[in-house]
């Protein structure tokens, strides 16, 4: 029965080819460091699932942000778990992204023909850091407030356009309701859209080109 349904679908949409290209593709014999990219992808999925769940209760205004986060943590069943997974998952995602990049650097996997994969990865790193920076403010507690005050001031220390950057980030001179709302908007709309786009390019290239083998010594002729 199931085979009939899957065959019926395959005849019409050809999913089997896609499935085989993604999951049954041939790879060289590699080591466990080559799983760091998949691990990063897993944390990204974790962040997406738990992040969507958090938006069900979170309210991005100075009047309600802190209270709504406390409500999630203390009143909602499993709220502590969802928030905890998002909180720790964020750190794990940054760490894994960096480790994944280190593996690519140290094993020379960024070289021809995989330069574009590397470029998309560099932009993905920026997106991940952006997620971390904007997400840090959202609980609207002391740590969040002062962390973002310092963070935006650091961005403001750039020469010439620094003050302008700071004002654009904060939506004014001070950290305010405007700042919280725009950080939230960037965190849940702009960055996820960028992440999906870049991830699609990154994964397409990984699958299309195939992954690099571990570098070995030149065979002696």
């Amino acid at each position: 029965m199931i085979t009939r349904v899957t065959n019926w679908l395959d005849e019409r949409i050809g999913w089997r080819n896609v499935w085989e290209a993604i999951f049954l593709r041939k790879i060289p014999k590699v080591n466990w460091f080559y799983t760091l990219g998949s691990a990063t992808l897993f944390t990204a999925i974790n962040q997406a699932v738990t992040g969507i769940l958090l938006t069900i209760y979170y309210a991005p205004t100075p009047d309600h942000a802190y209270d709504s986060v406390q409500y999630i943590t203390t009143q909602i069943p499993m709220g502590w778990l969802i928030r905890g997974l998002h909180h720790w998952g964020a750190s794990a995602m940054v760490v894994l992204t960096v480790l994944h990049m280190l593996r690519v650097i140290l094993l020379g996997a960024y070289k021809y023909p995989r330069e574009v994969t590397w470029f998309s990865g560099v932009f993905l790193l920026l997106v991940v850091v952006g997620f971390g920076f904007t997400g840090y403010l959202l609980p609207w507690d002391q740590k969040a407030y002062w962390g973002s005050t310092v963070g935006t001031r650091i961005a403001g220390s750039a020469p010439l356009i620094g003050d302008w950057i700071l004002r654009v980030m904060r939506g004014g001179a001070e950290l305010s309701a405007v700042t919280l709302a725009r950080f939230f908007g960037v965190h849940v709309w702009v960055l996820p859209a960028s992440l999906i786009l870049l991830l699609a390019i990154h994964m397409y290239l990984v699958i299309k080109i195939g992954i690099s083998a571990t570098p070995g010594r030149e065979e002696k002729a």
């Binding site: 769940l53 069900i56 009143q75 909602i76 069943p77 499993m78 709220g79 778990l81 969802i82």
Partner: peptide, 15 residues
């Protein structure tokens, strides 16, 4: 592990 807590989390206030 994600799905079961997610259901509890979503229906919590209604229950």
């Amino acid at each position: 592990g994600f799905g079961i807590p997610a259901i509890a989390y979503i229906i919590g206030p209604a229950a």
